[in-house]
Write a protein that binds this DNA or RNA. Structure first.
Lengths: 327, 327
DNA sequence: ACTCTATGCGAAATCGATTTCATGATCAAC
DNA sequence: GTTGATCATGAAATCGATTTCGCATAGAGT
């Protein structure tokens, strides 16, 4: 690859002038022409590494997420990418598998690669952001909080859990279970709290804890606890799934048991983009994951540009999509 | 962030020695201790940008794919990530949306950021790799060829299409359609060719072109052409879907029409990780996407390490998973 | 005892861009 | 016509690591 020096020599100017041409600083028309010409001839592309080293900032943002195989997060990623790309930034997608150690590694890399900023769906609320804050890199939290006072975009989880449950109540179900993710993950906990509030009000004689299951936010987790629920002496007649993958797992198990929804009512907090049930027999509270990504990316870009207003938290609401009777 | 100079000063050695300590070059025990001590005190992390500039190579590899929202590619990404991460590399995930222009931009970035190599699922077979080859960066093709003589990992697409179709024949279906991706994408074309071979042999009186539909590799594409097929004067009694998303779209439409498989036979080339049909009424030819990622990453790492044997192509076979009778 | 090699280590060059600083030219104002 | 401001431009410093080069010391070989 040609360097700025070679371009300078061919154009008969100094390297400084070449740099100025490419950065929009005032240069006489004739030199601009000469430089552009030389650059074209040599197929010059500025070396981003050198530029980053000198400017102490790169046009790369890190998106750190716990599970790249979850469509919820890829949809989020998609939103981030669209905004970033338009602004001339590229996105490094970092998959942590919910492991704090992997997450810490990626955050270190973000620092030592001088990345412009980080969008983080934290593996846990004990994630340590001291170093990256000390490095002055902006961080925007998505989906979950971080324990730091930083910008964030989250879903209205409690409301979503509530809406899902209420809809099942309206549909006539009387014994509504809930399966959700790890208790330590706030999204899992809050959605369950939404469910709990409705159940406690509507069915005061039911012991909520019997019908509540914490699991992983994965398909196999959903399968496992759904089996447990069905094996109860008095099984539920409906279930609220705390995220998309749990929903998939639960529905799989139900189908295996001949309890295809709506025989047993199912409401999912999240979307099922690849479901083959259609028109859906399942109630969804669709979460605007892509919109979350877009919002977070915009906020991050503002911070990168130097905005230092107090930290903001944006809360996005899910949208109830009621089950239609199966066709 | 502390620099190597500050560490050197605190440890009472030269910056060169600090560098040597961190790169495993011979240094006396006492100086090693002093340097490590100083580094710990200052929380020193080497600046990767400076290192990349000097070494002309970074520990980052680019994974360029056409659709990050397709679980097939995220599974692939997962395989790449696992291998890369273990080898100390991080992965930049670049989503091209099958647009040559976006793809070209990302390839330029890979060059100008001195990335160690690229794993590429090309947007089209006209992708231009001249620049990146001139830059001496290794490229491994995945899923699809590139028109260049480089390492690659592909699926046995024709065989997969054939296996899917043959299974439908064995299951008694007589009028088997095929929906696949854009004709210009070799995976789409080859899978259709597999289908065509079987149909031509088994049902010589059928005009294959009437039952073959090229579309996009997306859910809406599958929906659209499935509707078309059902509207035929003489509709098919089974269909082969050329990838996972087409399969999802097709099954959605079938469900809407009350033709839930196996009423109308469905075989999909690919996996349906988030399907809610279970035990599946759908025949799958599962493609080892993750394995493809692992293989490609290993090949790339070998090239990065300097291996210059002739280009290799690895072909992976799908695995037939017959539909079980619905429970 | 006298080379000869090996080894540890610091000084300085290097990677390729950006940016500061100094210089000379141009032009307006009084 | 002198002063001052503005502007284009080049030389050189800078970002922070790695690496070459050369020197000094230590140990091996004859």
């Amino acid at each position: 690859m040609a360097t700025i020096y070679e371009v300078a020599k061919l154009a008969g100017v100094s390297p400084a002038t070449v740099s100025r041409v490419f950065n929009g600083v005032a240069v006489s028309d004739e030199k601009v022409a000469a430089v552009r010409d030389a650059a074209r001839q040599l197929k010059f592309t500025p070396n981003r590494t050198a530029r980053t080293l000198r400017k102490q900032e790169s046009e790369v943002i890190a998106l750190v997420i716990p599970d790249i195989e979850n469509p919820y997060f890829t949809e989020l990623a998609r939103g981030v990418e669209d905004v970033a790309q338009k602004a001339g930034y590229s996105v490094v997608l970092c998959n942590t598998d919910s492991q704090l150690e992997k997450e810490a590694t990626y955050l270190q890399i973000a620092i030592s690669e001088h990345m412009a900023g980080v969008i983080l769906a934290a593996a846990s609320d004990t994630t340590n952001l001291d170093d990256i804050q000390a490095a002055g890199r902006p961080v925007v939290a998505v989906d979950r909080g971080t324990g730091y006072d930083i910008d964030g975009v989250v879903m209205a989880n409690r409301t979503a859990g509530q809406a899902a449950t209420e809809h099942l109540v309206r549909a006539g179900y009387r014994r509504i279970a809930c399966i959700t993710g790890p208790q330590l993950i706030e999204t899992a906990y809050e959605r369950a709290q939404g469910w709990r509030a409705v159940v406690a009000r509507q069915f005061p004689d039911v012991d909520p804890d019997e019908l509540l299951r914490y699991s992983t936010f994965r398909v196999d987790g959903g399968r496992e606890v759904m089996e447990e629920l069905l094996a109860l002496p008095e099984p539920p007649d409906a279930v609220v799934a705390g995220n998309n993958l749990l929903g998939v797992g639960a529905i799989q198990v139900l189908t295996e048991h001949g309890l295809t929804p709506p025989k047993l009512g199912v409401a999912v907090v999240g979307s099922l983009p690849f479901t083959t049930l259609s028109p859906s027999a399942v109630t969804l509270v669709r979460l605007p994951a892509r919109h979350m990504g877009v919002t977070a990316a915009k906020m991050l870009l503002e911070r990168i540009a130097g905005d230092d207003q107090p930290a903001r938290t944006v809360v996005l609401r899910g949208e109830l999509q009621p089950a239609r009777a199966a066709g």
